[in-house]
Design a protein around this nucleic acid. Structure first.
Length: 234
DNA sequence: GTTCCGATTCCCT
DNA sequence: GGGAATCGGAACC
């Protein structure tokens, strides 16, 4: 993809100030850019996941507002970057009206600019399609960490922003967007309800393979290990 | 103060 | 396909 300097304007806040599922869908195919002293890395978003506020049991906001989740409860158009598993950063984009506490997790992308820098940040990636295949990988490739938590995506000088690229939506035809449920979390309307939490671009090699979060082994001692084995692949 | 567990990834089999 | 690595937030006592 050619990065046209004329089109590097960031999406306006109004883009994020909409229902979370609309924002999630419209983010697909768009390019997120992070500028650092080392340079720019840009990635085309290929997979996202929606988190629909405090009523969403799978959301960090479900337990109410805490110092950690404060950004989610704030105004739209800001980044919510959190640390997970003691080693990974994951990036969300806050959306909906202030107080909604909904956000879109960037699950996967295709690095389209700054490939060398992205490779240096992701030495474990064997192929370029693996550079940003997965939420923590995407954050790593972009060079995102806690320093970007709360960052304003819409400020004129913001280092982190999503480009307002008119070709983004045209690069995906009708039906190119696929949606699927999260596993382990029932929909707001009750068990079994299919809610399009996750959406991705069909046929993209950078879409992360879906895996059910495997219950990790308890700390030594707990003999009764009821392993709930469930497998699911897309 | 202490314990539990996670919106994951990597490496080995 | 399975297990280990690793640390901070939030719940619990």
């Amino acid at each position: 993809m050619i990065m046209d300097a004329v089109r590097t304007e960031a999406l306006p806040r109004a883009f994020y100030d909409r229902p979370v599922l609309d924002v999630a869908r419209d983010l697909l195919g768009r390019v997120v850019v992070h500028t650092t002293d080392d340079g720019d890395v840009a990635a085309r978003v290929t997979e996202v996941e929606a988190y629909a506020g405090p009523d969403d049991p799978g959301s960090h906001a479900a337990r109410g507002r805490t110092p950690r989740t404060a950004v989610m409860f704030g105004p739209p158009g800001h980044a919510y970057v959190y640390f997970s598993y003691g080693m990974h950063w994951c990036a969300n984009l806050v959306c909906g009206p202030e107080g909604t506490a909904s956000a879109v997790l960037l699950r996967a992308g295709e690095v389209v600019s700054g490939l060398d820098l992205a490779r240096s940040r992701r030495p474990a990636a064997r192929r370029d399609v693996d550079l940003a295949r997965g939420p923590a990988r995407l954050a790593a490739a972009l060079g995102l960490d806690g320093a970007q938590d709360g960052a304003d995506l819409c400020a004129p000088t913001s280092a982190l922003r999503v480009l307002d690229d008119a070709t983004a939506s045209s690069s995906r035809g009708p039906g190119a967007v696929v949606t699927g449920p999260r596993v382990g979390v029932s929909g707001p309307g009750g068990d079994g309800e299919l809610f399009p939490w996750r959406s991705w671009l069909a046929g993209e090699p950078t879409v992360s393979a879906y895996r059910v979060a495997a219950p990790r082994r308890r700390r030594a001692g707990s003999g009764a290990s009821t392993t709930t084995d469930e497998e699911s692949t897309q």
